[in-house]
Amino acid sequence: MQQVQILTEGDSSLLIVFGDEISPEINSRISAVVQLLKNQHIKGVIDLIPSYAALLINYNPQVISFSEIRSRVETILSMDVKAENRAKTIVEIPVLYGGDYGPDLQTIADHAGLSPEEVIKIHASRDYLIYMLGFLPGFCYLGGLDERIHTPRLASPRLRIREGSVGIGGNATGIYPMDSPGGWQLMGMTPVKTFDPNREVPILLEAGQYIRFIPIDEEEFQRIRTLVEKGEYECVVHHDSDKEDA
């Protein structure tokens, strides 16, 4: 494991840098430290921002000083559980691929020299690690898109991409949590709201979890959408039991 650095970011934040590369191992260690920090309820900690290879802690210096919080963090880093021991959480995201919902599916297929059906199969056949959230509320940076379906962004971005759109931009794939301009190639849409400010849990997904895309048809899309609007839909979540904490 690389040397972890604890750095100042002003008088009210501290940055823990875990490494200088994007890897599932580093990311999973960060998730473990976030969990430990949450469990300890350290007074004065007001927010945690995990990213690919670092963790920013916002704190209130009126409650806890830099040297105090640094020593608490050092203790936590020394007791950091092995990443492999943690459960893997997989959230299923139903997606209606193609048609009006995914106007660029054919472009992606043509670029890859595959049929649209093969593109869907490849996209929905693996679990994607959520490295971090950012850019928009609930926007997930996912790792692990199959190289065969990497597709350049649109030459001219769309002014409005509808909420729930699933797309590919270069080597990344993701879900638009809200209407937004954007340049990704759109391959489908999920009826699930990943961001709803008025819900008890506004953001559905969190860093360290995995996403699995489940292809659905129009009828299923409408059924789920109705449930979502009534606030009665819950995504299927798997906990990989082999990796449960001892």
């Binding site: 007001i46 927010d47 921002i49 959230l133 509320p137 609930g138 506004p202 953001i203 969190e206 860093a207």
Partner: peptide
């Protein structure tokens, strides 16, 4: 505060 990890 409390929602920055989710991009807010």
């Amino acid at each position: 505060y409390g929602y920055q990890s989710q991009g807010i």
